[in-house]
């Protein structure tokens, strides 16, 4: 899952980004609204965490311009916690709202909740065949048995399950699993697919030759 964090306060942006990375998200950062909007328009993020009060272009403007072209989920992050501002944010097409100062755990939970809602899953647990993923607890189970996975493996499984029954291209996987500073080679994808098949069976991820991969729910 790839996240964009747009926040002008360096310390805050860094800690939010780092936290999300530890939650196995691929995280891009922007220190102002203009740059943030540019990135949000040019990559398909799974969610944008957007600060309201920013130099150059504030969060409302970024949101408005983004919404003209894309339905990327947006979580507004701001120091204003008045009801009026929350309503304004939600009316402008924000998917959720979090007032500063916030708990990092709440931020992560909301990020996940927004992405789940956008993906059509309302509960954190989704079962595909005999594989069950819990995005909150960050666990993968084969049948009843929990299987140890690395952060990247989990991220890939999460992304594939979210887009289950769709053919997922390698480019899409690459864009959503690695952030802009990641210099991993695209053949790393093959490694993760191989590892996941090893752990959950050959049929968990199927290859569609010349197109990409697919996780089928039945």
């Amino acid at each position: 899952m790839r996240v964009l964090v747009v926040e002008d306060q360096d310390d805050l942006r860094e800690v939010v980004a780092e936290t999300l990375r530890e939650e196995s998200f691929a995280v891009d950062e922007s220190a102002d609204g203009e740059e943030g909007l540019y990135k949000a328009l040019n990559w398909d993020y799974d969610i944008v965490v957007l600060d309201v009060m920013m130099p150059v272009m504030d969060g409302w403007e970024v949101l408005e311009k983004l919404r003209r072209e894309k339905q990327t989920p947006v979580l507004m992050l701001t120091a204003l916690d008045q009801v009026r501002d929350k309503v304004k944010g939600l009316n402008h097409g924000a998917d959720d709202y979090l007032a500063k100062p916030f708990d990092l755990t709440e931020l992560v939970a909301r990020v996940r909740a927004v992405m789940r809602r956008k993906g059509g899953d309302h509960r954190p647990e989704v079962t595909v065949g005999n594989v069950t993923i819990n995005t909150t607890a960050k666990t993968l189970r084969l049948g009843d048995k929990e299987v140890e996975v690395t952060a990247r493996e989990f991220a890939m499984a999460e992304l594939m399950i979210k887009h289950r029954d769709e053919v997922v291209t390698r480019d899409f996987l690459y864009d959503h699993l690695f952030d802009e500073n990641d210099e991993s080679m695209s053949n790393m994808l093959d490694v993760y697919v191989y590892k996941l098949r090893q752990k959950f069976g050959k049929n968990f991820i199927k290859t569609r030759r010349g197109q990409g991969y697919i996780v089928e729910s039945i």
């Binding site: 800690v15 120091a79 916030f102 708990d103």
Partner: peptide, 22 residues
């Protein structure tokens, strides 16, 4: 004034939570 206070508080809160999370 409260907005100005919130930003450093948010940083302290987030940074300390991050440091203590593991």
């Amino acid at each position: 004034a409260s907005h100005e206070m919130r930003t450093p508080i948010a940083v302290i809160l987030a940074k300390s939570q991050f440091a203590l999370s593991r």
